[in-house]
Design a protein around this nucleic acid. Sequence first.
DNA 1: TATGGCCTTGGAGTGCACTCCAAGCAAGCC
DNA 2: GGCTTGCTTGGAGTGCACTCCAAGGCCATA
Lengths: 151, 151
Amino acid sequence: MQTTPATHEDSHPADICSARPPHHPRPDGQDHYTISEVVACTGLTAHTLRWYERIGLMPHVDRSHTGQRRYTNRDLDWLDLVTKLRLTGMPVADMVRYAELVREGAGSYRERQELLEQTRRDVLGRIAELRDTLAVLDRKIDFYATEGNTR
Amino acid sequence: MQTTPATHEDSHPADICSARPPHHPRPDGQDHYTISEVVACTGLTAHTLRWYERIGLMPHVDRSHTGQRRYTNRDLDWLDLVTKLRLTGMPVADMVRYAELVREGAGSYRERQELLEQTRRDVLGRIAELRDTLAVLDRKIDFYATEGNTR
DNA sequence: TATGGCCTTGGAGTGCACTCCAAGCAAGCC
DNA sequence: GGCTTGCTTGGAGTGCACTCCAAGGCCATA
């Protein structure tokens, strides 16, 4: 959506952003990160990155002439999304499903939207649960702060 | 132990609430729930309840004359707390640690407070992450809603 | 008395998400 | 050439939080 609008969304999964703030280590021409560079800037392990690829959660990573992985800015965007989804508690299998939909192209827009909307509802629910828990924690902390000091 | 207020906090883990809203199925005199009743009202499985007890996460459950478990309202409160903490992502080992502190009595107030305050910070962090994710989801959903309808 | 339902136990099994291992290749440096 | 560093692979292993199993006890109803 930022330079060539039409097929951009479908050409690669790390897509989909209208206004995208994330700043990458390198400009779009020189984005050929080794696996250890990606480890450094995502916090994921190399094991995990290779495993994501094996299970179909990564959308085919470029290789150097010697067969080593070379990640692009797009890949970083995708990993960023995956990391966020993982934090919501979304199972890896569901993320793989989403990755498959992205690979299928524009025809899966509707289904992708539904999947994300379901996820959105899950996230809202989780936030509500956490707020609930926070209230309980605050009550108990308050108890300990008060009782703990008066005896 | 449960009628005399002073040691109330220490006599049993399912304690700690100053104002406690949760309404129990039965009044405090008749609270002798079987395991299947607890399953019905907590949503946990019988397996899990027994497992919690084995690993020291439950504070000793009463038994009937035939050796069957009889849970009290206090136990339900404790399970409610455990369930909430679990939803925050707190490891079971940490919850067991908290249970041990409760068993130790009033001397562990300070440490309990610190543990809960750390948990509180974790929860706040998690909520912030989820908000972040929500923003990303909203952007993507908006993209699919717009692009999906214009083609 | 027999049948069914609910409960008990220790130990073994499951599913998820990694996490590690061994063996080997390629590049850079002394 | 030799050494180190970084990468490759498939398959096996790990840790967590359950989850299930087999074998059996207790008790109410038919």
